[in-house]
Design a protein around this nucleic acid. Sequence first.
DNA 1: GGATCGATCGGCT
DNA 2: GCCGATCGATCCG
Length: 214
Amino acid sequence: MKHIKLKFDFYARDTHIVAKGLLGKLLVRQWRNKVITGRITEVESYVGINDKACHASHGRTKRNEVMFGEAGHAYVYLIYGMYHCLNVVTERENFPAAVLIRALEPVTGIDVMQQTRKGEALVNLTNGPGKLTRALRIDKTLNGENLAVSDKLYVTDDGYKVSRDDIKAAARIGVDYAGKDALLPWRYYLSVDFPCFTTRNVLPDSFVPPSYGG
DNA sequence: GGATCGATCGGCT
DNA sequence: GCCGATCGATCCG
């Protein structure tokens, strides 16, 4: 099947629909003639100014203004002074909402990822929002990038099928400050083939990660 | 201007 | 489980 780059119409929908729709899709990064890709395995929704966990809940700032813009653009910000987080903007203009990409299953360019991540084991390369941005060389220079047209960063559908039963929902991580909104089950992740490639999942001792040709 | 804290991670106890 | 790294946004004054 041909890989189809996701366009504006995919992103310009309800944030939770987009979030769950991104599970199983390929995140593609072109960096110095290298193609680094990973299958999206875990995401979180951040929806509007009434969501206390959403950066937009304190109004529009220079940092979060991309979230107020057109769907399909990347919202990349620096967290804890040393990591970047990648979000894709959803819904309509002036309605600030986005999906945080929290984990990937490494697919191609694994050699580049391991160089960047100091030889980390496959299962630890991209199982976290700060880890995957480092592995895919994503930083603030990509803030505002339009994923619907970009060649540097985009998402494709390669035909990988995700059934509804494979998608689990849970509370978002690291948002305790958000009060009751911290309890909303707006973290979505794939539970089936590769549980190691989402965060906060315990691996059975018997688990052997799949190997790839790179 | 200064203090505080964060959509995190990796090292250490 | 705890803690430091490290910087920018926010809040207080």
